[in-house]
Amino acid sequence: MPAHEDALLRQVQERGAYASPDEAERAIRVVLALLGAHLVGEVRSELAERLPETVATVLLNPLQAREPLPPERFVRATAAWIEGADETTAPSDVRAVLGVVADLAGDDLMSRILLQLPVGYDVLFGRPQPV
């Protein structure tokens, strides 16, 4: 069952300490567009099914990535795309969105998501894996 958009916005706004829902929504859209460029196939579709339709389309119609970005470059790309963000605030933006996404995805899907991403994304999702 997909998450309700208001609940997703509220959770991201709270985790990211955003002043307004608009700020949280911008972060959600940017982070999901970048994430969608890194996920393929069934994993991306399953994650989209757990998100509100309005943001699921962002995940399903991403920008095309030439190569998977390591976590540090993912954060820098986020900083470049979120208005008012910089490299000191972007890690918080990414963790706020991906932490909520991880909660919605659940453990099984998160394991499969992390298999498609470069090493280090587990920390961005707030799910550090044992080495």
Rank of each mutant, 00 (worst) to 15 (best):
M1E: 09
L9A: 08
L9S: 04
L9Q: 09
R10S: 13
V12Q: 07
Q13G: 07
R15T: 04
R15I: 04
E23A: 15
A24V: 07
E25F: 09
I28V: 15
I28M: 11
R29N: 13
R29L: 13
V31L: 11
L32H: 11
L32C: 10
A33K: 13
L35N: 09
L35D: 07
G36I: 08
A37S: 15
A37V: 05
R44P: 02
S45A: 15
E46N: 07
E46D: 11
A48R: 01
A48N: 04
A48E: 02
L51R: 06
L51Y: 10
P52H: 10
T54W: 03
V58I: 15
L59N: 05
N61E: 13
E67I: 05
P68G: 02
P70R: 12
P71L: 04
R73M: 14
F74L: 11
F74S: 09
R76D: 15
R76M: 14
A80M: 13
W81M: 15
W81R: 15
G84I: 07
A85E: 11
D86M: 03
D86G: 14
T88R: 14
T88F: 11
P91V: 03
V94Y: 05
R95T: 10
A96R: 05
V97H: 06
L98I: 11
V100F: 09
V101M: 03
A105K: 02
A105P: 02
G106H: 08
D108K: 11
D108F: 07
M110Q: 07
R112S: 03
I113G: 01
I113S: 01
L114T: 03
Q116Y: 00
V119K: 05
V123M: 00
F125D: 01
G126F: 05
V131T: 14
